[in-house]
Nucleic acid binder design. Sequence first.
DNA 1: CAGCATCCTCAAGGATACTG
DNA 2: CAGTATCCTTGAGGATGCTG
Lengths: 133, 133
Amino acid sequence: MADNMAPSSSPSPEGRPEGTTGACPSTRALELVAGKWALRIFPALENGPVRNNELLRRVGNGISQKMLTQTLRELEANGLILRTIFDSVPPHVEYRLSPLGESLNRTFVGLDDWVRAHWPEMERIRKSQVDSD
Amino acid sequence: MADNMAPSSSPSPEGRPEGTTGACPSTRALELVAGKWALRIFPALENGPVRNNELLRRVGNGISQKMLTQTLRELEANGLILRTIFDSVPPHVEYRLSPLGESLNRTFVGLDDWVRAHWPEMERIRKSQVDSD
DNA sequence: CAGCATCCTCAAGGATACTG
DNA sequence: CAGTATCCTTGAGGATGCTG
């Protein structure tokens, strides 16, 4: 844990610090932030606070309550998500992106856009390869 | 498979198509492209062709030959990586990013940059939370 | 409703050994 | 050197049931 985090001020000749070491922070952050479910949760929170159940539905597909909570807690612990507890008789909890989380989400949107733009090409390549195989 | 891929031209009122369905392509692409090892392989290929062994060393950390090959094949099948076989007596194979792969890598760089910029803040938050706990 | 605890399954992935 | 095949371990994650 807690490795030193040299800013981009002193990159290697190749450009960025690059993965010869294999300990680049993005790797860890991805694993932290993208436990495969995080990527699904972020867009579900894009337009405001959402409650547990709603979130469960929004993320949908194969997520379980367990995984949702677990991922949510991790994101919260890293300041990417804010958890608001309304102390009402039927418990009411709201999750929303923190400013930091929204910032990260913007990066995700970039990735999402890339995929949208290039997915067809990838699909084409996939087929042409089995074809020439 | 082969879901329709509406370009960002017709987003939902909220912004993008958003994950109510849970079948957004970025999810699948991430799982395809980011089998957790892909993210490590891309930077290792940033500055030109690399051979299997070298790649194994470059990615380093916990990757095994099995996982390397497996991931490489998947990336290749999607046109993100090019595999060149030199038919020499000691087998010689080179991997490099395709133009498509380089394009995707640029997105990864963005993510990487975000992490570099915000990791300290996340770390601070992490600590302050256990503090106020 | 939110969410924790428990049990159990299954497959991702490591280690090892072998081949062209 | 590059790559496959096999075995085996581990833990991610689902299902269920209970609580405040």
